[in-house]
Design a protein around this nucleic acid. Structure first.
Lengths: 235, 235
DNA sequence: CGATTCTTTTCTGTATACAACTTGTATTTT
DNA sequence: AAAATACAAGTTGTATACAGAAAAGAATCG
C-alpha cells in the first residue's frame, strides 16, 4: 500500500462529512483530535488541516483554544435556509441545463438510480446521502465558482434537515418522497433537453416540496392537540 | 507583547488578503512558505493553516505537492461573475435592509466615509479596499450564513476586477466612480429606512454600473478600431 | 549537438516534542 | 459553609526535525 498517507486523510474527510450529513455527528458535537488521529492513523498536523478545510466548507466551527465543533443549526438558520435555497438552487439548475456535459448527465442518472434504490430498500442515512449526491452533481454541472460555495453550504443543511424527514412517519410523507423522486426524473429530462426555464421551475417545485415535508415533521398534528395537552411522540 | 503568536497569524492573513484583493499578488502567483514564515515570524505549521483557510474562502488554490497559488481569474469566470453577482447582491442588500442593526449602519457609514476619502485622495488600492469594506459590511448586515459564502467569494473578484478600473482613465470612468459613491449613499438610506425593494433595486443599478465600467475598460475604443488593427494600450 | 536518464537539490507533507491555554479540583481564606 | 484562589490534568497551538515528492541540473547516450 502506497496511497496510505493521503488516502487516510481522504478517509477522515469522508468519514466526518458523512457523519455530519447523516446527523450521526450531531450539530454542536465536540471533536476529539487525539481520538480521531489515533483512529485514522494520522498525526494531529494533517488532521487539523482537514478540520480547517471542513470549517471553510461549513461542516465545522473552529474556536481558538477550543475543540472543533460540528456546525450548529437553529431555527434562525432554518429561516435563512428557506430564504436562500430557492434562489440559489434555481440558478444552479438553470446553469446546469445550460452547461451539463454528457458525462455529467450520466453521473446524474447514476445518482438518481442510487436514490431510488435507497427509497426502496435503504435506511434514512442512505436516502439523505443519495439525495445529497444527486444535488451535488447538479452543482458540478452548473460550474459557476461564485454560486457553488453557497450551494454546497445549503446542501449540507439540506441533508441534515432532510435526515429527520427521510424517515417517513406518515403516508403523506412517503408520498412526498416518491414525488421528490419523480421531480428528480423531470430535472434530469430538463437538463438533458437543455431547457433552462423548465429546470428553474422544477427547482422551485422541488424546494416547495421540501418545505412542505419539513412542515409535516415540525408540526405533525398541531390542529388536533388541545393546548396544554401532554405531548406524545408522533406514531 | 503577549498577543504575538495569534496576532502574527492575523497579520499574515490580512497581508495576503489585501495583497490578493489589490492585485499586488496577481492571480496565479506562487506563494513561498519558507519566505513567508520567515517574514512573519511563524513556523510553517500555522502558516499552512492560514493557507487552508484562505483557500476555503477562495483567495488561494491548493494543489497537493505543489505550492499554494493565488486563485486564478479568466474570461470564463468573468461571465460567471456577472451571472451570479446581481442575484446574490440583490438578495444580500434586501436582507441587509431587513436586518441591519444600528451599530452595523454606523459601520457602513464609516466605510462610505473612507470610500469617499479614497476617491478624493487615495490610490487605486485604497479605493478598491474601501469599496470592498463597504460591501463587506452589507454582507454582515444580511446575516444569512447560506448566502455569505458566495457573496464573499464574489467580493474577492469584484475587488480584483475593480482594481483595473478604480484607476480611472477616462472622464466617463471618473463620472462612474462618483455615481457609484452616490449609489452607496442611496444604499445606506434604503437600509436605514428598512426599504427592501429600494435596496434590491439599488443593488441591480450598482452592478449594472460595475458592468458598464468594466466594459469601458475591456473594450476602451472597440468601435473605433478596425478589425486586425494593432492594439495599443489605453492611454 | 540534442535528447534522455540519473543525480542532486529544493520544496511539500507528516510526525513528534514542547509551550500555552482552559478547565476541573482541591485547598485556603473569610 | 461559601467564595476565591491556587494547583493539576488535559487539550490546543506552535516549532522543529524528518520523510517523500517535484523540479533542476549534470552526465551519459544516441
Amino acid at each position: 500500500m502506497k496511497d496510505d498517507s493521503k488516502s487516510r486523510k481522504a478517509d477522515l474527510t469522508e468519514h466526518l462529512k458523512v457523519g455530519i450529513l447523516t446527523l450521526r455527528l450531531q450539530p454542536g458535537t465536540d471533536l476529539d483530535e487525539a481520538h480521531l488521529s489515533d483512529a485514522f492513523g494520522l498525526s494531529r498536523t494533517p488532521l487539523r488541516e482537514v478540520f480547517r478545510q471542513l470549517a471553510g466548507e461549513g461542516y465545522l466551527d473552529l474556536r481558538t483554544n477550543r475543540s472543533a465543533r460540528v456546525s450548529e443549526m437553529s431555527y434562525t438558520t432554518l429561516r435563512d435556509f428557506f430564504l436562500a435555497a430557492p434562489m440559489v438552487y434555481g440558478a444552479i439548475l438553470r446553469l446546469a441545463a445550460q452547461n451539463a456535459t454528457g458525462t455529467q448527465i450520466d453521473a446524474l442518472k447514476d445518482a438518481q438510480q442510487a436514490f431510488k434504490a435507497a427509497l426502496r430498500a435503504g435506511s434514512a442515512e442512505d436516502r439523505a446521502l443519495a439525495n445529497n449526491r444527486f444535488h451535488d452533481v447538479t452543482g458540478e454541472m452548473s460550474g459557476n465558482v461564485y454560486l457553488l460555495p453557497s450551494f454546497n453550504r445549503l446542501l449540507i443543511d439540506h441533508a441534515r434537515i432532510g435526515m429527520t424527514f427521510y424517515r417517513p412517519q406518515t403516508a403523506k410523507m412517503t408520498e412526498n418522497l416518491s414525488q421528490a423522486s419523480n421531480q428528480h426524473d423531470a430535472i434530469i429530462a430538463a437538463i438533458e433537453a437543455g431547457d433552462e426555464a423548465a429546470a428553474a421551475q422544477l427547482a422551485e417545485d422541488h424546494w416547495n416540496l421540501s418545505r412542505d415535508q419539513i412542515e409535516l415533521f415540525v408540526m405533525p398534528d398541531a390542529l388536533d392537540v388541545p393546548m396544554g395537552a401532554p405531548l406524545s411522540k408522533p406514531a
